[in-house]
């Protein structure tokens, strides 16, 4: 198998995975959630018509359980696929994810935006989103820091995102030698498929910096 074929295969695998994740997320949101909501309203109706207190209390418990399940399914759906990417765009989806990230890991992300946001296709937005997501999760897992920065720079022909922290950092060469670079290689591969690039630099005790670049063409974006 040649290198070109391997790249095509990994592109196909990543795209297939994303399509499947999106399908499951939409099915959860638009199928299962809707059915659960019908159950919820039905149970509320039944509850109001029951005279026996113990059965009414049991129905109330069931209603609460269904309500909790609706919330869980909704959160799982958003976790799988950020539907705001399609409706509100990349910046809004990332800002929304960062809010969730801070409440999940307790790490505060300072956001800075320069320039005016441009239209980016859903496919390319998703590549950038997933790459940022991976970089942020790496901060939560390994950087041992309470704060990090994310900056968007919207230029005429490109979008540049820099995510940096002043956490533990690591020896990049050692990580490559010990084959601990799989996640970062996947980030780079995603960005290459999207027509952009991803670069990482790090040094022990000084922190890590991830730079993501995505070319943008005029007239309707990319």
């Amino acid at each position: 198998m040649e290198l070109k074929d391997i790249n095509h295969a990994s592109t196909y695998i990543i795209q297939s995975q994303e399509e499947e994740i999106k399908r499951i997320a939409l099915e959860l949101h638009e199928g299962i959630s809707q059915n659960l909501y019908s159950l919820y309203t039905g149970l509320e109706f039944i509850q109001s018509g029951i005279g026996q207190p113990h059965i009414q209390a049991y129905t109330r418990e069931l209603t609460e359980l269904v309500n909790r399940t609706i919330k869980e399914v909704r959160l799982l759906s958003v976790e799988l696929y950020p539907s705001t990417l399609m409706t509100l765009g990349l910046s809004a989806a990332l800002k929304s994810y960062i809010k969730l990230f801070t409440s999940t890991f307790g790490v505060i992300i300072n956001i800075k935006t320069v320039g005016i946001e441009r239209n980016v296709s859903e496919e390319k937005s998703l590549a950038v989103f997933r790459t940022c997501q991976e970089a942020l999760i790496n901060i939560a897992k390994y950087a041992d820091t309470s704060e990090a920065n994310l900056s968007f720079t919207w230029e005429e022909e490109s979008l540049r995102i820099v995510i940096d922290d002043i956490g533990l950092g690591f020896d990049v060469q050692e990580a490559i030698d010990r084959k601990l670079f799989k996640g970062i290689a996947a980030m780079k591969q995603r960005m290459i498929i999207a027509g952009g690039d991803c670069h990482l630099s790090s040094s022990l005790g000084k922190g890590t910096k991830v730079t993501i670049v995505l070319p943008i063409r005029e007239l309707g974006g990319v």
Binding site: R68, E72, L75, T102, S103, T104, F105, G106, I108, S146
Partner: peptide
């Protein structure tokens, strides 16, 4: 709510616990 918070801790290394919200389950 489904949310679980960590309001009281001892021996913490940082202030992250103040922002943590864990989901039920």
């Amino acid at each position: 709510e489904l949310d679980i918070v960590w309001p009281y801790v001892s021996g913490n290394r940082n202030e992250k616990y103040k922002y943590l919200t864990v989901r039920y389950g």
